[in-house]
């Protein structure tokens, strides 16, 4: 008897979602197999890497992360341009970290201004990510949604506590939203159902499963993403058949290991390479778990992940 490779019987397909507007848009999703299981199905769109840009100069970044952007951190538009121009970013993720009431508490009007400037400076899709403060995000993202109606943005995080306000804004102004839930299959599904009930069309939802960095709970996130994909592809779970976005750059670069100097941690190796490797490994793992968009920070890490991705796609380095 000859050996037969066991195959998985898929009965679902991930929806294809287009982010941004013509001609500067990208499409993600569409998978009919587990990530990179190209021998069993198709991945019509390669996962995309979005590069982070911050709305205010970062205060506590490790040297390794700061160095490539030292000349542009004071100007988000220039920063975004550098990401696209010098590092070939396919998407930009504007992190509105300074709007957090516990940070600078930048007013929503200012966030709108920055968003407009960044959007005008680039020709790739723009992701706009709030600070994670529920009430402030509602105010900020809602205003951006309205005032930047001419752009087609990917707005996140949209949580259970804000889905009505931000879902309605998406309906009115045609933005795509990142439905964010804390590392749980059922919660992710529930939020997608709620968004559907609100009337948000299925082609405007992307799942944000919430991710952590390598060494900081990544396994749990990985496992939940895997289960999201298993449910979507093999268990006919129609409300999970959405692409996944992983906002991981900010997670990796805040962990201790990316910040310790060589003197502080001589066993951990070159601090410049350390963070890059941690970020690249984290991103790669999330791509293997089903990520369709990964939001990253360091150009070298991105370079590494691109290479690995191409290899996985059988396209050589």
């Amino acid at each position: 008897m000859s050996f037969e490779i066991p195959t998985i019987s898929y009965n679902g397909v991930i929806r294809q979602i287009t982010v941004g507007k013509e001609p500067n848009c990208v499409t993600v999703g569409g998978e009919s197999c587990y990530p990179f299981y190209l021998f069993e199905g198709a991945m019509p769109h390669l996962p995309r890497i979005a590069m982070e840009v911050y709305d205010a100069p970062p205060e506590d970044w490790p040297q390794a992360a700061l160095e490539p952007f030292a000349d542009v951190v004071h100007d988000p538009a220039a920063w975004a341009q550098k990401c696209v121009g010098s590092y070939g970013a396919e998407m930009i993720a504007l992190q509105l970290a300074s709007t957090d009431p516990n940070a600078q508490d930048t007013p929503a009007e200012k966030a709108v201004e920055v968003t407009k400037k960044v959007a005008a400076a680039i020709n790739v899709p723009l992701i706009v990510w709030g600070s994670g403060n529920l009430e402030k995000d509602k105010e900020v993202l809602r205003m951006i949604s309205e005032r930047c109606a001419e752009e087609t943005l990917l707005l996140g995080p949209v949580e259970e506590g804000s889905y009505k306000a931000l879902g309605a804004a998406s309906l009115a102004y045609q933005h795509t939203i990142a439905a964010s839930t804390p590392i749980d299959v059922n919660l992710a599904k529930q939020l997608n159902i709620l968004l559907g009930n609100l009337g948000v069309p299925d082609d405007r939802i992307i799942i944000d499963p919430t991710v952590g960095a390598l060494g900081y709970g990544l396994e749990f996130c990985y496992s939940v993403m895997e289960r999201d994909r298993m449910a979507a592809l093999t268990q006919e779970d129609e409300r999970l058949q959405f692409p996944i976005v992983c906002n991981l750059g900010k997670e990796v670069w805040k962990i201790k290991e990316t910040r310790l100097s060589e003197e502080e941690a001589p066993l951990l190796g070159d601090p410049l390479k350390r963070g890059v490797l941690l970020e690249a490994m984290t991103a790669l793992l999330f791509l293997l778990a089903g990520g369709d968009i990964v939001i990253m920070r360091h150009p070298d890490a991105i370079q590494l992940v691109r290479g690995l991705m191409n290899e996985l796609m059988g396209e050589g380095v």
């Binding site: 309205e146 009505k164 306000a165 879902g167 309605a168 309906l171 009115a172 102004y173 609100l198 009337g199």
Partner: peptide
């Protein structure tokens, strides 16, 4: 319509 309609959808 768009500005006020949003309030009808999100329940405000």
């Amino acid at each position: 319509l768009r500005k006020r309609g949003v309030e009808f959808v999100d329940g405000t």
